[in-house]
Each structure stands twice: as structure tokens, then as C-alpha cells.
Computed example of a mutant assay.
Amino acid sequence: MDLRIFTEPQQGAGYDTLLTVAKATEDLGFDGFFRSDHYLKMGSVDGLPGPTDAWITLAGLARETRRIRLGTLMTAATFRLPGVLAVQVAQVDQMSGGRVELGLGAGWFEEEHRAYGIPFPKERLARLEEQLEIITGLWATQTGSTYDFHGTYYDLTGCPALPKPAQARLPILVGGKGPRRTPRIAARYADEYNLSFFSPEDSATQFGRVREAAQKEGRNPDEILCSNLLVVCVGKDEHQLARRAAAIGREVDELRANGLAGTPAEVVEKIGRYQEAGSRRIYLQVLDLTDLDHLELIASEVQSQLS
């Protein structure tokens, strides 16, 4: 079971903070550092110093880390044109030496689109499908050839399909909870399918839908890695657990029910339930980015117990 660190910088974190957490992620042996792609805070936090751009952040981290995987959960398809996004991601992958993964979603937070003047179309899932086809098509086009695409929402003619990622196949992550369309999109384009804040039981059901959709696409279901994103709050005892929960404005009982919270032994047991449901990777949503001791505890007492 891989453990990756996931951050929500729009809630309040500058680049230097993210760099510190990314370096700790690498030093402590976690598999990867991922971040959200949002421009507006959520909830009552002040969000200072303001949002950071996901792909600019990852470009910086690509040059200042050496081992960990880097990526987004999820880049909003509404934020960037597919041709431009393909160039950005390929360049960051080159800058990292081939450690980047692209999580791409339809976009859902209408308020941030209004705040920053970004169009918020109704047909976002259909646009997402075209974006996935274009991006994967551009990267798969042989060097020296051009790429054309004439869809409902996007039109590319004579694109040189450059630059290429450093990786022969840059992993694509798709997420979402829809029972039919989302599994079909994942089956067609994804190397990894991610579920956010799902229980082990509900995860097993949705993972099964993705596997069925993959079979219908003529694809080996085992080619798609299934993963979960969950808020994490671990304490060596109840006092430390309560303190960490209070620091992120959450209740211990609620975190135990809906996230990965408790003592290290409790968290290891719950991760085992997700593994039984078919998950092979957990993204740990770390909400207090100043508490590096938290990461150290997870690395030494949780990660060390996982096979």
C-alpha cells in the first residue's frame, strides 16, 4: 500500500510552506506529494497568503525534489485549454526527470470560477472527455507527425504535439463518484481511479463498477490502480489526537468515522479495510501543514507497518 501526502494550499499556504512539506514527504519515505488545483478557499479559513497555481508549484518542486511522485488531485479541465495543459504537464515532467502524474477532473467549484472570471459551462463532463482524448493523443503522437482533433468543444489542426513528457506513459488519474459515466471515462483513459472521502464499503462498490467498465472497453481491469483520498489525523494517544483534531477544526469522533484518524494501530487497521476493498494507494489529506511531527509519526508508526 502506497501512502502519498495531499495538500490543499488554497486554504492557506505559500510556496515555501509547500516546499517544506514536500521535502519532508521525500525525506520520510512517502511515495508522493500531490496538491489540489483550486483558486479560492473553502470554509471559514482566511486562505492567506492567497492561492498558488498548481502547475507552477509543481514545476518548482520538480527541481527541488529527487524521488517522490508529483501531481494534482484534480486539475480542473475548466482552468486550462487541453493543448496548453499538455505542454505544461509535459514540461514539468521533463523538469522532474519523469515523476509527474496528471489528475484531471471536470471542475466543480462554481464560486471560484465566478471569482476569477473562469467560464463554468454546463457540459463539463463532455469537455473533460475531449480533454482526455486530446492530451493522451498529443503525447502518443509520433515525433515528427502532427495531431488533429475536431470535436464538439475543441478543435486542433496541425498541432506538432510537442513537447513530450519524459515518461513513455505519463500516468493519468481520474476520479468521481458517478455510477456509470465516470467509470466509463476511467476505463477508457485512466491509469489510476481515485475516490475522495468514500468508506471502504462504498469504495468496493465503485471500484467494481470501474473494473466492469474496463472489461467492456476490452481492457484488463488490473491496469487501473484504485486509490482513496482521506483526511488524516493521527495521535500517539488520545490527548495528542484531540489536539491535532482541534487544530484543523474537526471533531475526533467525526474524523474516526469519515477519515483515517486515531492511534497508529487504529489507522493501520482501517487502511487494511481499504486494501480489502481493492485500494492500492492512499492519499493522506494533511490539513495542518505546520505540523511536521504529524508526518514523522505517520511515517514511523503507520507507514512502517504497511506491506
Rank of each mutant, 00 (worst) to 15 (best):
V89G: 00
A59V: 07
A76L: 10
E26D: 05
G117A: 08
Q206R: 14
P221D: 12
R114E: 13
I185A: 09
D27I: 06
L81M: 11
G235R: 05
R281S: 14
E133D: 11
K23R: 15
G71C: 06
E8Q: 12
F34L: 14
L81Q: 14
C159F: 11
I271V: 13
Y39L: 15
F197S: 11
P221F: 14
D237E: 10
V302L: 00
F197Y: 15
L170T: 03
D222M: 13
R188N: 04
L138V: 06
Q275G: 12
L241P: 00
R209T: 01
I248K: 09
G14W: 06
V92F: 07
V267G: 01
L260K: 08
F79W: 15
A90C: 02
G60T: 02
D253R: 14
H150I: 00
T152I: 05
S44V: 09
V174L: 08
S199I: 08
T52R: 10
L306Q: 05
Y116M: 07
R63K: 14
F34V: 12
A190G: 07
L170M: 11
E133S: 14
I172N: 00
R181A: 07
A22V: 10
F34T: 09
G50N: 00
E269N: 09
Y283E: 06
G83A: 15
D16G: 02
R35I: 15
S199F: 05
Y189G: 02
T152K: 14
L125R: 11
D291L: 02
K177D: 01
D27R: 14
D2C: 07
V45R: 08
G60M: 06
R273T: 12
V45P: 00
A166I: 02
L162A: 11
D202M: 11
G178Y: 09
I118W: 08
A115R: 10
A115H: 13
L85G: 02
I118G: 01
R209I: 04
I248N: 06
L289S: 08
R67W: 03
T205C: 04
T143N: 02
L156G: 03
Y39W: 15
L61P: 01
R209Y: 05
A86C: 02
L81G: 12
Y189K: 01
E251G: 13
P200T: 10
L225Y: 03
V89Y: 03
A265E: 13
M1N: 04
P121V: 10
V234Y: 10
